[in-house]
């Protein structure tokens, strides 16, 4: 870990003027700083900022302070009642200890678990732009099958963000100049392209202050995570689904996927395919095929294509029967 200057902010404004890398839960940032993958020169401790409440918005939605811990968020009665997929996703992630520390804002910014990103002696365009990608042709079991580029095939490891994506969450930020802005989560993340080191739309010094959930999405909520051990492992494939039935037809559907891409994956086309249809096996297969039409395996992760297909079919079957 490189030496850094530490300061503690007591207000959002102060955090902004102090300038530097914000630290909240620290569960990913310190992990990376110890290995000198992240090397900030200044650290601004934002844990004392008044951003740890979950407030109801007028329209039935919720405004989640960026510092609300993953555990508190998962346990919140309103989230459990109205946004169950989010509770489920949070509870499927990490461990009790990590969830008690990890913040809502920080979780969105989690970085990839790619083994070559973590090994500083290996080429990695995300860690060191222009150095190459060792994961291509290497051990890429956990890597992307959608949206990857020849520069980077990393995946986003968050479970929470997948559910947030299905819930149409909006990221509220305060920029370095003091202006606030809102970024819908679907526009928040970037695909790797030629710049895999730039993972989201946040600008230098921009602080996530809240994450807003629109009014609850009615229907059956499910978060299905497939991983290499029964708990405490990152997703190989995960599916967040909210399906509302109207009689025998699918009235509304919202789907998001983890483990498949550089970002939590959402494809509105799939949802459009479902709405107004009667649930049946063939429909689910068509939706899964549409999801995976452009899927590209990298060798070790080829299995994710059939795994994602089967998991989605199973989730849709469960959600349409349960709804």
């Amino acid at each position: 870990m490189r030496p850094f200057e530490y300061s503690r902010a007591s207000s959002v404004g102060e955090a902004r003027t102090l300038g530097g890398r914000f630290i909240a839960g620290g569960t990913n940032l310190l992990d990376l700083m110890k290995l000198e993958i992240e090397t900030p020169e200044k650290i601004v401790d934002i844990t004392r900022l008044p951003l740890n409440e979950i407030k109801e918005t007028g329209d039935g939605g919720l405004k989640i302070g960026a510092l609300v811990t993953n555990s508190v968020l998962a346990a919140d009665e309103r989230i459990r009642r109205d946004h169950e997929v989010l509770s489920r996703a949070l509870l499927a992630g990490a461990s009790g200890q990590l969830r008690n520390k990890a913040s809502t804002g920080g979780n969105l910014l989690q970085r990839t678990r790619c083994g070559y990103f973590y090994e500083t002696s290996q080429p990695c365009n995300k860690r060191e732009p222009g150095s190459g990608c060792a994961a291509i042709g290497g051990f890429n079991r956990i890597h992307a099958i959608l949206g990857a580029s020849t520069n980077c095939i990393a995946t986003h490891p968050s479970d929470m963000a997948v559910a947030m994506m299905a819930l149409d969450a909006v990221v509220e930020t305060e920029q370095a100049d003091g202006h606030n802005r809102e970024i819908p989560l679907r526009d928040f993340y970037r695909l790797p392209g030629d710049t895999p080191h730039i993972e989201n739309e946040l600008k230098d010094g921009e602080l996530i202050v809240n994450i807003r959930l629109p009014k609850p999405k009615a229907g059956y909520h499910v978060y299905r995570k497939v991983r290499d051990r029964a708990s405490y492992a990152f997703a190989l494939v995960s599916v967040a689904a909210i399906v509302k039935m109207d009689g025998s037809e699918i009235a509304e559907a919202s789907l998001a996927f983890g483990g498949l891409a550089h970002k939590p994956w959402r494809d509105p086309k799939l949802e459009a395919m479902l709405v107004g249809q009667t649930p049946k096996r063939k429909l689910f297969e068509d939706v899964a095929d549409a999801l995976l039409a452009d899927a590209q395996g990298q060798g070790e992760n080829d299995f994710k294509i059939p795994l994602a297909r089967r998991t989605l079919i199973s989730v849709l079957s469960e959600a349409t029967q349960g709804a």
């Binding site: 569960t27 310190l30 401790d45």
Partner: peptide, 27 residues
């Protein structure tokens, strides 16, 4: 492990369990 991967460092902070390896003392 020093990276929040094993739980051997678990402490309670304000009554809640955390991985003490993944947080700075000054915080």
């Amino acid at each position: 492990c020093d990276h929040g991967q094993c739980g051997a460092c678990t402490m309670l902070v304000n009554g809640r369990r955390i991985n003490a390896c993944l947080t700075l003392a000054v915080m």
